[in-house]
Amino acid sequence: MKHVWASGAAAVLLLSVGTYIGFFHAPVEQYMGITQKIMYVHVPTAWTALLAFTAAFVASVGWLWKRAWTWDYLLESTIEVGIVLGCLLSVQGALWAKPTWGVYWDWDPRLTSVAVMVLTYAGIAALRSFVDDPVKRATWSSVASALGYVNVIFVYLCVKWLRTLHQPQSSPSTVDPAMVLPLRINAFGMIFLAIFLVALRYRMARARRARELEA
């Protein structure tokens, strides 16, 4: 439990420092002005959401292969944290899009696939609560989330493959060096935040399953 709280503390510290540097030390973007500051949370949120669903994919393969409950706890917790991050991501994106693109939303491949991603995993989370048999629940949701992972990879790649409104991924060569540091700090901050939330949710899943298997 000590490690769990340590990663929560690390998240708070890193996100405060990163956001502070991003807001007050990184330069103001030449065309977008102050609006671009949302990048310091939006991009780390996106990375972490995709990481959470990647962890869910690993967990689902792990369950199907090993049938160890650990994988099911991990699946349940990473899916739920991923959904929260995915919702945050969409709201941040809409807030950034309105002043820059001129619209809150459009059905471009990136935005649409993110919506499909969030809804897919929300559906799987709902499915889990409808299945009483723990083994069936773990197996069905593992298969569903492994298949849903195709779309997660599509979310990442569609801006390279297809015509989109959303710009492709930036890299340190396309971002001012003074903007890269706060972005990195916040990326680690978001990862620690996700680890913290997943760890808490994992313990909850384990406690619930223990009671369920006893009964």
């Binding site: 030449q30 065309y31 971002v175």
Partner: peptide
């Protein structure tokens, strides 16, 4: 009408004000 910006994020050039 929607603006599609690219993946570049830069500080304004020396002596120029950021903005739109």
């Amino acid at each position: 009408l929607m603006v599609k910006h690219d993946e570049n994020y830069r500080a304004p050039a020396e002596g120029e004000k950021p903005g739109t």
